[in-house]
Amino acid sequence: MPSPTVAETPTATPGPPAQRATTRSGRTALTFEQANRRLKWALLTPSLGFVALMIIFPLLFTLNLSLTDAFGAVNANNAYIGLQNFIDALTDTRRFWPAVWRTVYFTVGAVLLQTVLGLALAMLMRKAFRGMEIVRTILMVPLLATPVAIGILWLLILDPTNGIANHLLGFVGIPPQEFLGSVSQSLPTLMLIDVWQWTPMMTILLLAGLSTLPEEPEEAALMDGANAWQRFRYIILPMLRTTLLTALVLRGVDALKTFDIIYATKGPGGGSGFEAETLNVYAYGLTFDYQEYGLASAVLVLFTIFIVAIVVLLRRRTGRTSA
């Protein structure tokens, strides 16, 4: 039974006023001993402080900034303008909404392709084969490189004039393409670069999921005469659904936030026609190119709400499926 605090026995312990359980203000009191029993909190304080400093404070600061007309410098005398920045962002059909659309288009397209390819590769690598370790190592290579390095690498490969891609296409009679230099081809090209980099991640996640599946249901289906597709469609896929949804959430949130590759290849504003300007690139431009900190913060708050909403929806879906 836990020992009671002095506060719980104000009259049980004779002695000086300090040893009785109330402070001068009459509030419930505890001694250092009891404080020590709350040692867990004392030990947690540094990490809680870190979280507060690094996550909660920036979030609150951004939220506060989004309600001001901050421009030029964040430490200037900024006036509160209510929700004006949110109204400006949500009524901006020239930059904000096209950026929202591109963010969704890029994320859905890239993640779907990664999922399909990742699942296919995971199925192929499910059973051990000779040279599997080498194949796995090669698959990991794109994951090891930094996104900026990958952006520059692909920029050189896809350069319309000096790049090797058009040189190779020329061998099979395909005319030179502009790739990242084209308004219409930029975003699909960036999606393919993202697919190239992140498909191995999907493969690893799904391979881990596949390795945990019991073999009996598949063997039973095989005995019943189910072909490979039927075993995949009706046995493996339903059992893998939870892993699949988790992988989708992880990769989806990450893809929504893609910045490095787009900025490294298309520069500020996502290209000359804003053709690859996603919400992240737009918010970055508002902050560092335009110094419109108030509006940029509002866009980031909206973006955060957008991401949280998607995660919550997917989590609910995952929960229902698991249930």
Binding site: S3, P4, V6, A12, T13, P17, T23, R27, T31
Partner: peptide, 27 residues
């Protein structure tokens, strides 16, 4: 229900007002 404190008396000896800390004041 109340129970006597199980703290050693040597601890109690230091129980001057300065050593009493409320939850709020601890925070």
């Amino acid at each position: 229900m109340t129970m006597p404190s199980s703290r050693p008396s040597s601890w109690r000896a230091h129980g001057t007002p300065a050593h009493v800390v409320s939850r709020r004041s601890f925070g």
